[in-house]
Design a binder for these strands. Sequence first.
RNA 1: GGAGAGGUGCUGGAGUGGUCGAACAGGGCUGCCUGCUAAGCAGUUGCGGGGGCAACUCCGCCGAGGGUUCGAAUCCCUCCCUCUCCGCCA
Length: 425
Amino acid sequence: MLSIGYIRENEDEIRKMLANRSNNADLDKLIELDEKRRIFTQEIDDFRHERKELSKQIGLLKKNGEDAEKEMEKAAELNNELASLEEKQRETDEEYQNLILTFPNIPDESVPIGKDDSFNREEKKWGVKPEFTFEVKSHDALAEKLGIIDFNRATKIAGSRFATMVGTGAKLERALINFMLDVHTHEHNYTEIMPPVIVNSKSLTGTGQLPKFEEDLFKLNYRDYYLIPTAEVPVTNHFADEILSEDDLPVKFVAYTPCFRSEAGSYGQDTKGLIRQHQFNKVELVKFAHPDKSWQELEALLADAEEILQELGLHYRVVTLSTGDMGFASAKTYDIEVWLPSFNTYREISSCSNFTDFQARRASIRYKDKSTGKNNFVHTLNGSGLAVGRTVVAILENYQQEDGTVIVPEVLRPYMGGMDKISPE
RNA sequence: GGAGAGGUGCUGGAGUGGUCGAACAGGGCUGCCUGCUAAGCAGUUGCGGGGGCAACUCCGCCGAGGGUUCGAAUCCCUCCCUCUCCGCCA
């Protein structure tokens, strides 16, 4: 959420920002509602003040055994007027709240301006594209031949966009999770946490998935419950409605969770294989940072995610998402895209963002400034470190051999009982 | 799921209709004192919002939302959460 004070004072900048993001949030309406809301608030405050004074008088009069009829009538009249004002304010306020929640975060100046992903800026490449002397197979073809992923049975028991990992496939998935968690906890000093994977709508509003993106979520038919689309939701909300000590910043968490996405609106895209699933595993990095430090924390976060790919020996590039391609809550997003030979392109495997105070404001996550004693909003950041399913895809495709076997990257072998090659089960 | 108890400020804990944003204690902060530590003395100490250049001032907040009343932390209703016992269960 943006600060209404900032919006009021920087109307032109906000208008330009919305255009850059191709967002049609109604700024004029917001400003109008804000003014209305403040006028109502003022009037209601005045009425309440008057009523308070009257009530005090009534109390005193009654105590002295005097007649307070006149005052009580006056107070009842006041209450009538108050009630109608309060009703109007309630409506205005609700409309205002609903509207301001649909305003996206302001992109950082370093973000390229453009309407879609063609305006994303490539920042760097790491490693080299693997060369193949034979025709490469797609990961799903390889996995089926090896008998390590069963797509058909997953479809039978759940539906499309699900997969069952079998034998070495399941072991590879688990090895990757453990490897990633170990690197981030032991080498990068993140604290591992395992949060609920079901959350309420308040949490989803806090991180920005609601109210605008409800159709992307799986809503449970029980209470106000949703399956998480990413660990960002429960982990960022870990400190919702709390005030942290300045000395505790930055707080760094790493969480492994399954993630659930409806993938509404992606019909026909990536229908084959593991790329786009309703359920997938992800190791997520989340930081709560001091506002003065969040940009350097973003660079560090990106480096932490990159290291996983480097240790796995996977070729990738880093791009900065353009204003039109970046997420609603983000001020700046780096995508790490891994090379996938069968697609002959780079595909997103991690997304690292600085949300500045946008989520902190929605979820009310603050820290107490030591020098001023004031409470300020922290900055929140997160990034995949990494999406596990897509890492499996990248390993299968990049390490495939002509005979259909797959070499296990060295760093994973200790996690796979020493296995150095995946052969047919 | 059943029976009972309870949710108050950083913490403990008073407060059952009127001047209570809330006694008291602890903690924190600031002075004084002090060889160090501890103790002592005095003061201070919640969050959000509106108005004002400012000193300041006004409104809201005692789990959440409704209701009764001139007036609610206090009374009533609904919900959420916590604790104890029982049932069930991994």
